[in-house]
Design a protein around this nucleic acid. Structure first.
Lengths: 335, 335
DNA sequence: GTTATCGATGAATTCGATTACATTGGAGCG
DNA sequence: CGCTCCAATGTAATCGAATTCATCGATAAC
């Protein structure tokens, strides 16, 4: 591969001029620019990335860690991230942490080694390495969280109002006349789950139905939906509605409902969360909470770019709008 | 951030020794190693990636381009890639090309700029930039394809036998007694579609049913499944079975079947392709062809590492085993 | 006792681009 | 005509780590 020296020699100019042709073309005479570009063409020159990065201390990369890339919710968020990053001239380094702490730390080290200019993490755990960096540099550290807002966390973030969304779901169910409602949460360590659970409890109390709640803890997977919803359905005093904290768990719940010879929504109403692409193609179509997935991706990138450009000094925690999408899986309870 | 110079000064040794502590610890006296490691600890030193990369001309990164990251099939393959790459000390640079040629070229340029040691592309188009590189360096160019094998393409690849898999699907349907079969393909520019279509035609001819085929061209999306399967269902001489070249299109077909008041599998049998995680949670559970998605990911990485390590000189096109998974969406045609 | 050998370490070069600073030639001005 | 100023370009330092070659002391061999 040709280097900038080769191009300079070929074009009969200095390396400085060649460099300027790329980074500040208006400082170079048009005729010179032409000469250089011809040499570039002839040699098939591409600037070496490592050299540029070493000199400028920038990588033009954003590291994104995600608990599970095969989850359609996350992959939509990532799409948004990728789109916004590319538009700003950044590319995306992807890290699938598989919900494992060790991998989260591993990627955090990559970031500290300066393999990326910024880090976006979509999980709820802040790796120790990052916590140290944040403690040292404060809110100007280019680290941003998506989806999982927790007030104590010293990072900017973009997310929906999970508590309110969950309360709206419960209002919808109580409004239809349901009394006994089952809830399948995610792991309660994550704010995404605990906030939604708080919303569920608030709404239940407001409607005087707190004692009729059945809570089961899932892990956002389809299988845990089958298992946890199944458990709820098998208890005495079976609920007439189930609210799952993800659409995938709702898919599992639908299976559990069918396995027991029940019908959704006739016998059991079902609500999911996220509104993944598949939600509206289930049978019945799934009532769920739409998260602005790509927009979350755009926003976290914007927050990160603000930090990188030195435009922002204080933390920003952005709440994006969600929407309860009522479809065929919810109906009044059986008489 | 501390540099290697700082560490050397702090430990009272030269930078060469510090470097050796990391890359060839057995050349360094244990006592010296201790001293250096203490200095590293005290300063929180991490080697600068760009500097290392510039010197060694290696990035320890693999660039993976994928037509659509939000497609569960691809995200499973990527999981496999990520896992195998990480195990070998590489990290993954993700490029979502959104089926757009311009983005494919853009990522190809990134690769040429040496932002990654190797490239895995999961689409069917070989960007011009890559074709040039392959022409120049031959089969030792670290470029590998996943899923989309085409004999003329001068790259190694890992994929299933799409033609045979499609033929097996048709055998299954004809075996059940179906005569009129509808097929929803993907874009025929991709070998994945044309190979499968070839398998469909071969099997149909073998069974003497070629003239009873109905072919519609989709684009692998749910929506195109709804549309194309719907079109097939509305024609006179409606088929009793539909074979979609992706599970997502099959989901769409299921919707089209329901919209017409028909029942799957009583009126119409349905087969998908890929066996994405959701296939077995549809209602009815979807008969489909299981692709070894994570294994494809592992294999393409292995192929790439072989090239990078200089272990392989010739092209390798690896065919991995698929499996027809018969579930509830296929049954004999109505009497 | 002299010399070859080896293990441990340091000095200095190198990777390829960016950029602060220096230089050059010509235009503009009094 | 001489001076300033500016546009265009060149020179050379720099980024941080890896690595080649040199050095030094100690041991082994004869």
């Amino acid at each position: 591969m040709a280097t900038i020296q080769d191009v300079a020699r070929e074009a009969g100019v200095s390396t400085a001029t060649v460099s300027r042709v790329f980074s500040a073309p208006d400082l170079v005479l048009e005729a010179t620019r032409q000469k250089v570009m011809e040499a570039v063409q002839r040699l098939g020159y591409e600037p070496n990335f490592a050299a540029k990065s070493l000199r400028t201390l920038r990588t033009e990369k954003i590291l994104v860690t995600v608990p599970d890339i095969s989850n359609p919710f996350f992959s939509q968020v990532i799409r948004g991230v990728e789109e916004a990053a590319l538009a700003a001239g950044y590319s995306v380094l992807l890290g699938d942490t598989r919900h494992e702490e060790a991998r989260e730390e591993q990627y955090a080290l990559m970031f500290r080694r300066k393999e990326a200019d910024g880090l976006i993490f979509l999980g709820h755990r802040l790796p120790d390495v990052l916590a140290e960096m944040l403690a040292a540099k404060g809110p100007r550290t280019p680290i941003v969280n998506g989806c999982e807002f927790r007030p104590g966390l010293a990072v900017s973030s973009a997310h929906i109002d999970n508590e309110r969304a969950a309360a709206e779901v419960m209002d919808h169910l109580y409004g239809l006349g349901h009394v006994r409602v089952g809830v399948v949460t995610g792991p309660l360590a994550s704010p995404i789950s605990s906030d939604r659970l708080a919303g569920v409890l608030t709404a239940a109390q407001r409607h005087g139905r707190a004692s009729a709640l059945r809570i089961a803890i899932g892990d956002f997977s389809i299988e845990s939906g089958v298992r946890q919803a199944g458990g709820i359905l098998d208890e005495p005093g079976r609920p007439t509605a189930i609210f799952c904290f993800s659409d995938e768990m709702a898919m599992g719940a639908l299976e559990a409902i069918r396995q027991r010879g029940l019908d959704c929504p006739r016998d059991i109403s079902l609500v999911g969360f996220d509104d993944i692409r598949f939600a509206q193609y289930l049978h019945p179509q799934l009532t769920t909470v739409r998260q602005p997935k790509e927009q979350i991706g755009h926003e976290v990138v914007r927050l990160l770019l603000d930090i990188l450009a030195g435009r922002s000094t204080a933390l920003q925690n952005i709440t994006l709008p969600h929407q309860l999408v009522v479809r065929g899986s919810t109906a009044p309870p059986p008489a």
